[in-house]
Computed example of a mutant assay.
Amino acid sequence: MVSIEITSAERVALTEALCEALNPLASAVRARETGLPEERMWDADPAEVALSVLAAWKVVDEEVERLTAKAARTAGAYGASYERMGAAWGITRQGARKKWPDAVNRSAAAAPEWEPVTVELFGGSAELAWDPARGGWRWAGQGADGAHGEADGALSLTTREEAAAHAGAFLKEHGTVSGKPVRGRKAS
């Protein structure tokens, strides 16, 4: 199993980003529970405020679990095994299979390499399929913003991975993360 380490500076930045993302949710939860405006979230019994923050972290935890399962399914769609997923998560192959039972489709893994695959990224999805007329792979998809795209007919995509890369670039260009457009973000 691989142990992913982050620096203390990365941990501080991550904590700040998570708290910044959590505060509006915690304020909204607290406002609904009390009927008070969000800006008065802290004008209450500290235990009640802390419990509201705890409830908001529970929502974040559930969303992280959902996004984690989606990432595992995407990795499986690209051919990653449970062994590799487990290594990435720091658990055994069996642990990965138990955590994400639908991430690796055994029949798809045993199916011929030219079977269509659906990829979901950045709030959109694309289907990758073998095009016998062109003797190559094609993709067609819809981004989170509703834009439709497909492989350029003049471009020869010789592998499924190449088609997936082109589809992924389109989905990123027309996608969202946490409801915000991806465009304009710097790669980290």
Rank of each mutant, 00 (worst) to 15 (best):
R160M: 04
R32H: 10
V49R: 14
V64E: 14
L54M: 09
L14Q: 07
K58E: 15
W139P: 00
S125K: 08
E161N: 06
L25C: 10
P46I: 06
A96F: 10
T92E: 03
R66I: 05
V64Q: 14
K58F: 11
G175Q: 09
T176Q: 14
K98N: 12
G149T: 01
S178A: 15
A75E: 04
V60M: 09
R160D: 04
R73V: 01
L36F: 01
P181L: 09
E161S: 07
E65M: 09
G184Q: 01
R32Y: 05
L51R: 13
T7A: 01
A110H: 05
V177N: 12
W42Q: 09
Y78W: 11
A56H: 09
V49E: 15
S125C: 03
L14G: 04
E63F: 06
G136Q: 11
D131F: 06
A9W: 01
G124D: 09
N105D: 15
I6H: 14
K99Y: 08
G141F: 01
E39I: 02
H148G: 10
L171P: 01
A164F: 01
A111F: 05
L54H: 13
A111E: 08
D102T: 08
L51W: 13
E62S: 10
A96M: 12
L25A: 13
G86Q: 15
P46T: 10
A77V: 10
A50P: 06
E173I: 00
E20N: 11
V177S: 15
G168S: 01
T34Q: 11
E150C: 02
P37K: 00
L14T: 05
G95K: 09
A151E: 12
A88V: 12
F170W: 02
G146P: 01
G95F: 10
I91D: 02
E115H: 09
E20A: 13
A72L: 03
A13H: 01
E48R: 15
A28W: 08
G123W: 10
P132I: 02
V49D: 14
L128R: 00
I91E: 04
A17T: 07
D131H: 11
A163D: 00
A17W: 01
A44Q: 14
A75K: 01
A47L: 14
L25T: 14
V182L: 08
H166G: 06
L14M: 05
R73F: 02
V49C: 12
E127Y: 00
R138C: 04
A96D: 13
A169Q: 03
A28E: 14
T74M: 10
G123P: 02
M85L: 12
E38M: 13
M41A: 10
D102C: 03
V182A: 07
V177L: 15
A126D: 00
S3Q: 13
R97I: 03
A9K: 02
S52W: 07
A75P: 00
E115D: 04
